[in-house]
Design a protein around this nucleic acid. Structure first.
Lengths: 202, 202
DNA sequence: GTTAAGAAAGGACAATTGTCCCGATTGAAA
DNA sequence: TTTCAATCGGGACAATTGTCCTTTCTTAAC
């Protein structure tokens, strides 16, 4: 649920070191800041160095769907640059986030000239397709209770804490359903590792 | 709903012509044949030259989810080769399908040495992420009736006809729900272009 | 034409989920 | 400490969806 790509991150860090006068910069955003806005143009891509963000689509009916939580090494905006389109998603920070900022033309040049970069990018895009497809299938075909249980376990494993609203948006359900299902899980849960997390969620 | 990539197809066709002794071959599969099996190893990638296939995940609870319908120019198996993993999905033909078959090592060599190929592949993978994410969001956040209506319109526009079972699997619902929702749409429909299709579906 | 078997459609009921709203809780200001 | 407002949780009901099973339709054999 929290996607990361440490290989990609260290590649970018090396690139910055060797390439001092490059146009790659670092920026820090406060928690809760929406640094990419759906529907707008984008001129930079971002690679998260630290912190957690959420990438989400706001539908016309007012509901939000969280595509993924993004951690270290995850890229934002590259699809839009590759396809030359406006932003598909919003991206907002959950914690404070520091990110490398790469102008679109530099990014495109990298995809054309740096074969290691391209290789890593193909890996990243492939992983994303795999995860997105698998999740879509899982969320459509299993019960909410099973899906939420899986989500809680992932959170527990990864030692992160996501708000209820965000978990509901990730599962594509209302907060009401989320709370209801949480009670069911609490009533049944035998898993020691989840008790702390369930306690925190009330 | 029927993804195609004519640019990619013509690139491969040109590649075959110029590169006669290459290891790229053509194969034809009868309708209904499952040519990629979830969980198995894969040694070739396929590029559809003609016909329609479906790419679907079979979940452990016995349900299937159709990731996408694949038409001309769509690639199958490249994620598995890039990530060196077993097949995530099944791929089965719906009509008779003719496909280019490219051995994994040839495919990988192309991604490393042919920058035009890599560029097209990045485009293809990006498109897929965009479509998969948008659809996941849409299907989670809108009503079934709205989703099915959209699906029917797409089918009508693209002049293709998909079985009820496949449409239900694409929407991630039971055939019972599909039928029920179809009746609701029929009762309300004002759209001339859908009448023929709705008639065919009974 | 009749019959039987299998497939498809739909009725009935149960389970799930969303919406609306009220009561409880929290936190800040007085 | 009290009070008020804002947020959060959950009850009640409606709508949606799945499961199970019966009915209807199709088709092939006689």
């Amino acid at each position: 649920m929290l996607r990361t790509n440490l290989t990609f991150l260290s590649f970018i860090e090396r690139l910055c070191e060797t390439n001092n006068e490059s146009n790659i910069t670092l920026r820090t955003f406060a928690a809760g800041f929406r640094f990419v806005k759906q529907g707008e143009k984008i001129r930079n891509i971002y690679i998260i160095k630290d912190g957690i963000s959420k990438c989400f689509i706001s539908e016309e009916n007012g509901k939000d769907f969280i595509i993924e939580f993004l951690g270290k090494g995850e890229v934002v905006g590259e699809l839009e640059v590759i396809k030359k389109i406006d932003c598909l998603c919003n991206v907002a920070t959950i914690s404070e986030v520091t990110a490398f900022v790469i102008p679109d033309h530099i990014f495109m040049a990298l995809t054309e000239k740096n074969s290691e970069f391209t290789r890593l990018l193909l890996q990243e895009l492939s992983t994303r397709i795999i995860q997105t497809s698998s999740r879509a299938s899982f969320q459509q075909l299993y019960t909410l209770e099973y899906g939420l249980l899986k989500l809680l376990k992932l959170q527990s494993d990864e030692q992160i804490s996501i708000s209820k609203e965000d978990m509901a948006a990730y599962l594509g359900i209302s907060v009401r359903s989320f709370n209801r299902t949480l009670q069911q899980i609490k009533a049944k849960n035998q898993d020691q590792s989840l008790i702390i997390l369930l306690e925190r969620l009330g």
